[in-house]
Design a protein around this nucleic acid. Structure first.
Lengths: 154, 154
DNA sequence: CACGGGTTGTTCGAATTTGAATCACCGGTT
DNA sequence: AACCGGTGATTCAAATTCGAACAACCCGTG
């Protein structure tokens, strides 16, 4: 691999733009959620996923799969959120090993409280900055990127 | 803020695609760099920026500004890399407080060793997955996103 | 020249993340 | 029924991250 295909100008701009935007947007959202609702970004995502799940509960593994974190990271976060009363654990009746994370009413309320500010920030930093055409390009292009990485990685 | 403008379908797809791709791509690159060259992604970026700098050296603050990390995070990483012999510190002659991070020959060699595999991975997970039009949309759209966040945040 | 506001980099403690190891268990096989 | 590869979740130590506090210093002003 002595001479790989380096990135040309266009590719380089897309790549570094993606990298920078990725870091900056994540950083900004973390900060906004923490200030506004006392939630970390991972915690917010857990709330969203549980709220969308049937019965407002998911197995730990299912939660970890869709998420950024490793399994152990999820265990940690759920423990924190359980202390805060946002979720609770329920053992799975058909499999003693299995654990459901269940959204509590307090967790649901916390999500409703945090969501408007979060959405507003998402608009401010990303969605409202892009043209409709750019939005579509992101959805399709990055959607495919995600699909491939999920396919390989998992 | 009782009723914010929620994201419509198109916006939602773009947003969640961006979020997922951002996390997955970063994860994959971290892993590839670690396995392939024993570098973390932040460390690789430090090498790149130093290699591109005049005299192969930069002030700590300049390095931190372009970078993801907080100042203290940069101090930590540079210390690690100094132990590994990839960079060294040089105090600034005109300002006693100032510190330059200088790329060593070993650091330069490490970068040349790691770069081909890194670029190949970047192509594999992102660049070669996107159409030229999507590349342009990313470059322009996310470029603007980054510019705005830099303007505000700093 | 002394002063005060702003900068520079580091240090410190607390929070978080990761991967490896571990424990307990499921389900199919013999 | 005992076994066995694989699964689900947790625990643990180590590495990394951040923000706030800190010490030292620059520079323009009075």
């Amino acid at each position: 691999m002595a001479e790989p295909r380096w990135l040309d100008e266009r590719e380089m701009r897309a790549w570094s733009g993606f990298l920078a935007a990725s870091a900056l947007v994540n950083r900004r959202l973390d900060q906004q959620l923490k200030d506004d609702a006392g939630l970390s970004h991972p915690q917010y995502e857990i709330l969203v996923r549980l709220a969308a799940a049937p019965g407002r509960e998911l197995r730990m593994t299912e939660l970890a799969n869709g998420l950024i974190n490793s399994k152990s990271g999820l265990t940690y976060q759920v423990t924190q959120m359980e202390k805060a009363g946002l979720v609770r654990r329920r053992s799975c009746p058909s499999d003693v090993r299995g654990v459901f994370a269940v959204l509590t009413d307090a967790g649901s309320a916390k999500l409703e409280e945090a969501a408007p500010g979060h959405v507003a920030t998402v608009r401010e930093v990303l969605v409202d900055v892009l043209t409709p055409a750019q939005l579509d390009a992101l959805a399709e292009g990055l959607g495919e990127v995600g699909r491939r990485l999920r396919g390989q990685g998992a």
